[in-house]
Every structure is written in structure tokens, then in C-alpha cells.
Amino acid sequence: MDAFTTLKAVAVPIDQANVDTDQIIPARFLGRTRDRQVEGFFHDLRLDPNGRPREGVTLNNPAYKGAKIMVGNTNFACGSSRENAVTTMVDNGFRSFIAPSFGDIFFNNCFQNGCLPIRLPAERVARIRVILHELPGAEIAIDLAKQTVTGPDGKTDSFEVDPFRKEMLLKGADEVKITLGYESDIKRFEDKQKQEMPWL
């Protein structure tokens, strides 16, 4: 997994609340190999049924080209557990998501793919989205070690991140490898369970 340390990049705002992972990548793209899922990225939001770019859609505005940060709204990326929602974001350049709250599974899936989901207070996130609309192409700076986000207005907020997840991201660590280091604990658990729950 790629490490995540600092990121300074263009940020794109997504205003709707409850953006679900079916919007981020519609289900019909899921069966494909990863390299052919890239175009699924917000496909039906970006394009009309005839495949033409929809007008007035922020994601179609070339001013946000090269964005690596997405600033969403409440319950961002809720719904289906499809990890493709994170991988298609990654394959379209995104590495960090800022929102007041996230769908739990998407939030977990981010860390598995070297991405940093950041929760900030709803008012601050709303303010950042407004600025990003006013100044398309404006940048946000994130420092994971310091746990800070500096908005396009120069204002810096600190954010919470689980120490375990932080360490993993900073090192680009392999979670399976870490867990295998606990082999004796797992074995002990299994032996005990075999005694206690013989029906399993």
C-alpha cells in the first residue's frame, strides 16, 4: 500500500448529502477488471444517458482538473460496501476525502487503499465547499503526522485519526502482515473456542 504523509492538491466540492457508493461507481461497472472500472467514476452524475457531459456538474469543470481531494457532505459514500468506490477514486487521482460524516464501510475501506478520510465539523466543511466553488482549482493542504488540514482560505483545522490507522498510513504498512504477527494470540483464541463452542 502507498504511504500517506502530506498532500497539497486541488480539491473538488460535492454538495449533496448521502452521496452513496452507487453514485461513485454504478453497479454495472463492478464486474469489470479494475483497469476498466476507471470510467465508472461518478459516471451517471457526470454524463447523461447518451454519454454526453452534463452541464453545471462540478466534476466536469476543467478548473478542478488534477484534484486529489474531495470535499463532501454528511454521510458521504454511504450504502454498498463496494471497495471499488475507493479504488475508482484512487484510480482517478483522489487520495483524501473531507466530510462531516462518512458511511462506515467506505471509511474503513479508505485506509486499506492508502487514502485518508477526514471528518471536520459540518459548518467548516460547508464553508470549504463554498470557497472551492468560488475559487475553482484552489488547493487544500493536509499533514497527517500533524493531523492538520489547511483550507484554501489559509485557515488550519486539526482532525482526529485513530493512532493505529495513522501509523499504518504513514508507513504504508501491510495490515495482513501486522496481524500475522499476532499468530500466537489467534491460535490461543481458536484453541479456547474449540473447547467452548464445539458445535462451530
Binding site: E83, N109, L180
Partner: peptide, 22 residues
């Protein structure tokens, strides 16, 4: 509970998951 594809691999490999208590 539902998990993502990377976590599925993790469960296949270790029969465990890292979780913060909800």
C-alpha cells in the same frame, strides 16, 4: 456486518479483523 474487499482478504488470511468498537 459488511466489509470491503481488502478486509475480505484479511479475514481469509487471518480469520480476524481490526476494528474500533462501535
Amino acid at each position: 456486518f459488511g466489509i470491503g474487499s481488502s478486509e475480505v482478504t484479511h479475514v481469509m488470511a487471518t480469520q480476524c479483523l481490526w476494528q474500533r468498537k462501535p
